[in-house]
């Protein structure tokens, strides 16, 4: 009666994703994977966590199941549930169960957003046991060697109440991500958006300026993602200052004074 909601082919990362390595994260991830250790990716938004895991999936030649966690996501959403079909009850595997069955990578994005009970279901998966109990089926799934659990978590945002519990986080090998250094970030912006080097240089400089404002009117500075987005607009012939306004400043703030400050900062370098 078990059925999977996920088809194998769709989850293969076919083309090599562009990923600019910033340290030894590829080696560490690989080592953790070989030792069947779960991995926690920590870092601010838009710094390349998702891109990295895609790259690793390609690198390890494994299909990947991604779950974007939200505050209504329950354990059954991960594990699976009975549905009623034509008077019959049918069991449907959740994404986590399906990844465990087939030995895929399961990537739980922004795990802290999910309900508390979700972290409990991953506990037995993350220690030496590597088990996923499916209570409703009375089944105890054992993860095959190729299965890999990765979760992401942005320490900047979450609240005390939603903070990852020690008992959860201490099961993971943690890889810390931050915005790459200026030279690497420039390379990323060039490669991802197609702008020339001087423009990328300026975009990265602007990124640093907005990061100076973090905690002082801005919750976060501009992420690599925003810099890439602005670069794409510029590459499509949008005037740089306008591109920055729309792709970066508007995304960062609704405050008129702050918007103007970012606007003037970009005008000062372009």
């Amino acid at each position: 009666m078990s059925k999977t909601t996920i088809k194998n082919e769709q989850n293969f990362v076919k083309n090599k994703p562009y990923y600019e390595s910033v340290g030894d994260e590829v080696a560490v991830f690989t080592a953790a994977y070989e030792n069947q250790l779960p991995i926690l990716l920590k870092g601010p938004t838009g710094c390349g966590k998702t891109r990295f895991i895609e790259y690793m999936a390609w690198h390890l030649k494994l299909p990947m199941v991604t779950v974007a966690c939200h505050d209504d996501l329950t354990a059954s959403d991960l594990i699976g549930r009975y549905l009623i079909k034509g008077g019959e009850t049918v069991w449907i595997d959740g994404p986590l169960t399906s990844a465990v069955r087939h030995g895929y990578i399961c990537y739980l994005d922004e795990i802290v957003e999910a309900r508390k009970d979700t972290s409990v279901v991953i506990h037995p998966l993350c220690d030496g046991r590597r088990l996923l109990p499916i209570e409703k089926l009375g089944e105890l799934l054992e993860a095959p060697g190729s299965f890999c659990l990765a979760i992401s978590y942005n320490p900047g945002y979450q609240s005390v109440l939603k903070d990852l519990k020690q008992s959860t986080r201490q099961r993971f090998v943690a890889l810390e991500f931050d915005y790459p250094d200026a030279a690497t970030e420039e390379a990323i912006v060039i490669k991802e958006s197609g702008v020339d080097e001087p423009t990328a240089h300026k975009l990265v400089k602007l990124g640093h300026m907005t990061r100076n404002l973090k905690g002082n009117g801005l919750e976060e500075g501009a992420s690599t993602r925003l810099l890439v987005n602005a670069g794409k607009l510029i590459h499509s012939n949008v005037a740089p200052v306008h591109a920055v306004d729309t792709a970066i400043s508007q995304a960062l703030t609704d405050e008129p004074d702050m918007f103007q400050a970012v606007h003037e900062l970009s005008r000062s370098i372009f």
């Binding site: 300026m209 100076n212 404002l213 004074d257």
Partner: peptide, 12 residues
């Protein structure tokens, strides 16, 4: 002044 404060902070 609010604008200026942000602007100067952004400059570093």
């Amino acid at each position: 002044s609010v604008f200026l404060q942000h602007f100067i902070r952004g400059l570093g």
